[in-house]
Amino acid sequence: MNTLVFMQDVTCRYGGKASAQPTIALPNLTVTQGNHTLLLGPSGSGKTTLLNCIAGLQVVLSGRTEVAGADMVSATAGDRDQLRGSKIGMVMQRLHLISAMTIRANLLLAQRLVGTKVDHTFIEYLAQALDIVDKLDRYPRQLSQGEAQRAAIARALVNKPALLLADEPTSALDDKNCAAAIKLLLDQAALHSATLIVATHDDRIKSHFANIVLLGAA
């Protein structure tokens, strides 16, 4: 099995780049291709920080971080941007769909930004799979929370990433929708040969994952 994520003795600043933030030591982590992983821990345990380090959103202070074969510590910011765009799909806790653009434009933008050829057929296919095909030409404000979340998942998958990262994808959902959301992520990851890493404090979804990494007091 190919190793997609390898992290060893990693420290970084908690929560972001401000130098006033405390330094946090992250657990060692190895994720192989197809081995969907759950990062489980209470709020403040550093799971989002860990996810951001994998995505190259946070600068690692020490240790080794390799993602899809690339050394994220020595990589330039531009290299990290490129890797993130082409190999990693992210579904953030706040969905961050661009409000000025339709869902279709959001998806097209994600393709254009990494310089891949715009693939309208794949966008239609994804929308069909996520049941938002009739929402493609609507703006994010015109969508329900569930529809917006599916649109965010579609955007994360639009460049056919090897790694799909999801931060608290179910925290605001009731049990029924929670189960549906996690099933959707797993199904889509499987469908597009992506490996899913979910960071959450929601232990309702534990049963869906074979590989669980506990953080903090959890």
């Binding site: 995505a55 959103l57 531009g78 941007d81 490129q82 993130r84 765009g85 082409s86 992210m90 953030m92 706040r94 961050h96 661009i98 409000s99 000025a100 933008l109 994600a110 930004l113 990494v114 955007r155």
Partner: peptide
Amino acid sequence: RADLALLRVLGASPMV
């Protein structure tokens, strides 16, 4: 601000 940061998350270069 968040939109612009998101562009970077999606792989946009600072130039874009």
